[in-house]
Computed example of a mutant assay.
Amino acid sequence: MGVRIAFIAALLLTGCENVGIAPNPAGAEAAARGRVAAERLGCGACHVIPGIWPAGTSGPSLENFRHRAAIAGRYANRPDRLADFLLDPSETAMPRQPMSARDAADIAAFLHSAPQSANAR
């Protein structure tokens, strides 16, 4: 019995390693293209996006977006799901934007790689 408890304790302790959040696999090039696409498509007209002008307020702020649990309150906040949402924001207040699948993936990479702002909660 004592060996079993020691084994379980060892398993539990090895599972406590702090592995952190996995980095965005898209890379810096995709994020840089995403910033350009967000500017070109005028995303800042409705959203506050760090480093993007203007800073609109009709849509939700996208500061610290990568730390949110959900996209539009309904989808898991992952870059692939965000790209899908950007291409088809049906049943939300966000209007559909004329963007390619690459634009959407790059904007998702940009929002998921943006540094956390000082306003983080």
Rank of each mutant, 00 (worst) to 15 (best):
R35H: 10
M1R: 02
I52E: 07
P25F: 01
G2W: 01
P23M: 02
T57F: 09
G2Q: 10
A108G: 07
D88P: 01
H112Q: 09
I52C: 05
S113W: 00
A38M: 05
P95T: 07
V19D: 06
A28V: 14
H47G: 11
I5D: 01
R121E: 06
A26H: 09
D88T: 08
R74W: 07
S100G: 08
A93Q: 07
D84V: 06
A6Q: 08
A120R: 15
N64S: 10
A9M: 12
A101M: 06
V36I: 06
A118V: 05
R96S: 07
A6D: 08
F110E: 10
A55R: 14
F7P: 00
A104E: 05
G73D: 15
A114L: 15
A83H: 05
L86V: 08
A6L: 12
R81G: 01
T14V: 13
A6R: 08
A105E: 14
P50T: 14
G2A: 15
S113G: 13
A9E: 08
A38H: 03
R33Y: 10
E63L: 04
E63R: 11
D80I: 03
A105G: 12
Y75M: 09
L41P: 02
R68L: 12
G42W: 07
R81T: 14
A109D: 04
H112K: 03
F7W: 10
P54H: 04
A26F: 15
R66M: 05
A114W: 00
E17S: 07
S58I: 13
Q97M: 09
A6H: 01
A76E: 14
L11T: 12
L11C: 14
A22N: 07
T14H: 02
D106P: 15
Y75V: 11
A37R: 02
T14N: 04
R33N: 13
S90W: 02
A105N: 07
R4W: 03
P50A: 15
R121M: 04
M1A: 12
R78G: 06
R35T: 02
F110H: 11
P60L: 05
G2F: 03
L41T: 12
A22Q: 07
A28N: 10
I8L: 13
G27A: 04
A69W: 01
L12P: 00
P79L: 04
L62G: 05
G27H: 06
D84N: 11
A30W: 14
D106G: 08
C46S: 12
E39N: 06
L13A: 08
A108W: 00
